[in-house]
């Protein structure tokens, strides 16, 4: 049984996932979990996103590719509240208007994000990193009073196993290798129990073996989670992709299966044929 399956089972366990189901505020009754419509973002006149529209279905694993500077990271900035779009709307499910929420509110609503440059708490141990990410009441007073209970400890242990960092649990995160930091950050996302995971170049700097295992993990998460994966590594994209979106100069150039994309003339011109 792979770690991913263990994780799935644990997540699907009604007791363990009860809290998550209860607090699910996102209305996916129309299949879609994320709706971007006509989003534009400009930096000093330069349009990083240009009338971008995109719909992601609940449970989907969507790969987003595109040349450097295409606006992939900026798109994630808009979804997570880091950047306000100049125009356009961003909805999480049918009801949650992302442009009106702050970053922590969006995280609390169920969107987790892995940064392009791995971002973990370097002065905390691996274990503490996961503890901090753990889904919980994250206001000041409950945080001050918080104690790790058995359920939480089990969750952390299971995630440590999934991300293969059990031996490093007591290590400072700053001492991990680049690939291990990527894994830790993914583990932190899983601890948050988000509905939607945004993964910005999650396998950059990983060994082939680590990359392979990431692919397995992401594929296994699709279905119970929705994932948007930005990657430059085409082999990796090919391995996991059901549906691929190609971004170019801030808007969608093409969308479809990997085969469609690879045959698309425009895409070959701007991206694959470089």
């Amino acid at each position: 049984m792979s770690d991913a399956t263990i994780l799935r089972e644990q997540w699907d366990d009604p007791v363990a996932s009860g809290a998550r189901l209860l607090s699910e505020g996102v209305d996916t009754s129309h299949k879609g979990i994320l709706y971007l419509d006509g989003i534009s973002v400009s930096f000093d006149g330069f349009k990083a996103l240009n009338n971008l529209s995109l719909v992601i279905d609940a449970g989907e694993l969507r790969c987003v590719i595109g040349p450097n500077g295409a606006g992939k990271t900026t798109m994630m900035d808009v979804i997570t509240g880091k950047t306000q779009p100049d125009t356009g709307t961003a909805f999480f499910g049918q009801t949650i208007d992302l442009t009106r929420l702050s970053e922590p509110e969006i995280a609390g609503a169920g969107i987790g994000r892995k940064f392009q440059k791995p971002t973990v708490f370097e002065q905390h141990s691996v274990y503490e990193n996961l503890e901090l990410a753990l889904k919980a009441d994250k206001r000041v007073w409950p945080t001050l009073r918080s104690r790790l209970d058995g359920v939480a400890r089990d969750r952390i242990t299971a995630t440590l196993e999934t991300i293969k960092l059990v031996p490093q649990a007591g290590r400072l995160a700053g001492l991990l290798s680049h690939g291990q930091k990527q894994w830790l950050e993914i583990g932190m996302l899983l601890m948050q129990e988000p509905q939607l995971l945004l993964l910005d170049e999650p396998v950059a700097g990983m060994t082939d073996d680590e990359t392979l295992r990431s692919a397995e993990l992401f594929v296994s998460l699709a279905g119970s989670y929705t994932l948007i994966v930005v990657e430059h590594d085409m082999d990796f994209v090919e391995r996991i992709a059901h549906k691929v979106t190609v971004l170019h100069e801030g808007s969608v150039l093409a969308e479809g299966s990997m085969d469609d994309i690879q045959r698309n003339e425009q895409v070959i011109e701007v991206f694959l044929g470089r």
């Binding site: 997570t80 880091k82 702050s102 970053e103 922590p104 509110e105 995280a107 609390g108 987790g112 994000r113 940064f115 971002t119 973990v120 708490f121 370097e122 901090l132 990410a133 889904k135 994250k138 206001r139 945080t143 932190m188 948050q192």
Partner: peptide, 11 residues
């Protein structure tokens, strides 16, 4: 890492 804190759901 303040941004990571925000994206973990703490204000």
């Amino acid at each position: 890492a303040e941004t990571r804190v925000m994206f973990s759901g703490y204000n």
